[in-house]
Design a binder for these strands. Structure first.
Lengths: 206, 206
DNA sequence: CTTTGTGAAGTAATTCACAGCC
DNA sequence: GGCTGTGAATTACTTCACAAAG
């Protein structure tokens, strides 16, 4: 497979989110123009993104919605449910545990991990919380493939190392530091303060 | 001012986050090479980013750390504290309210807004929660310039409209939908399910 | 010597524009 | 007529490479 831009993969998610409800409510076909206008992007962008993975459209008509939904689900690997663990059961971690956005889109939060003995051994928002010492075994038993880091910045690196040694290859990092990981592990960073700062810059320059 | 790439502005935040602690612990100077290696990026990138805003370095020596910290703070508009409101006092909203990452970087969460009368009129994690009807007046009185949207997808657009009519020009949107706003308003989207999906794609293609 | 600042070169992503098909 | 698929053109971003300065 060719090198697909990261931006393309993220847009596929957006397409899916638009198309899935349309498919359920019975919309048959959609043109790149219509889909693009729903996302305020360029129609050629939509066509090019899809063309990386094959040719799904009908000239003169557009794309079959339900076919396209199935195809994107397959491309993104969200046909089956993905199990996720969250490390850090503080404010952010437990909010994420309870966040329904994840399950709606096919991700199941299986467990929280923390070091605080006031939290471990209990359920938080319905999700069991374990000690971080149990992480590696749990990941192995439950065949977990994805982890979310929601610990304070100063612990992020050591947690990342534990996660990597558990053989997880995909990490969503909320800690406001860049973490060092082997090249075969993918990290997506969600950096809240950074987003606010970039807004702040915008405000300064209106 | 020329067109500064969005990526440059976001990197400035990263530079700031590295430099600020260095400045406090007394590091005098830093070269673009050193700074770049701390972020695993190219030294020329650092120099080019900074050069958009002026010439701050000393040839042969590098950059004065505390000067640079002050300069970046000024560029990003984080010299003064920025007041922020959060709309939506559910799991995510209240977690964000309690998230210390914001205040550490100079943002103060002044209020939460919700429609649920079980929440309004109370304090949540120490932050007062008001009814959304009071939003416009509050923003005016308190001179709020930034808002965070943490409501479910189906309400995001109408909340965005309220925020826009309150004359706020910068929005951080956590709802998993693209919201339509006038071109003079800046929206940064933080899309958690999207980040997970892009990880999922990565896992499929190892 | 070292390191900056920056035009020029090189990459990557997006958009155009049109041939080909319905 | 309408719309896709895609090479070509454009735009945006990154990296190189070197003159100028300490």
């Amino acid at each position: 497979m060719k090198n697909i831009p990261d931006a393309t993969v993220k847009r596929l998610s957006l397409y899916y989110r638009i198309l899935q409800p349309l498919s359920i409510q019975g919309t048959h076909e959609i043109s790149s123009k219509n889909l693009a206008s729903l996302l305020a992007i360029n129609p050629a962008q939509v066509r090019k993104d899809l063309s990386y993975f094959g040719t799904f459209g009908k000239r003169g008509a557009g794309y079959n919605v339900s076919q396209l939904v199935a195809k994107i689900a397959e491309i993104l690997g969200i046909s089956e449910e993905r199990k996720v663990i969250i490390v850090g059961a503080g404010n952010l971690g437990s909010a994420l545990a309870a966040y329904h956005g994840f399950e709606v889109f096919g991700f199941k939060v299986c467990a929280l991990f923390d070091t605080d003995t006031h939290k471990t051994g209990k359920k938080i928002k319905g999700i069991p919380c374990y000690n971080i010492k149990e992480l590696i075994q749990f990941v192995k038993n439950e065949k977990i493939k994805m982890a979310v880091i929601a610990v304070p910045a100063q612990f992020a690196q050591q947690i990342a190392s534990v996660i990597v040694s558990s053989n997880i290859k995909a990490i969503l990092n909320f800690a406001p530091v860049r973490i060092n990981i082997p090249p075969d592990v993918k990290v997506n960073n969600v950096d809240l303060a950074l987003e606010l700062k970039s807004l702040s810059y915008f405000l300064k320059n209106i």
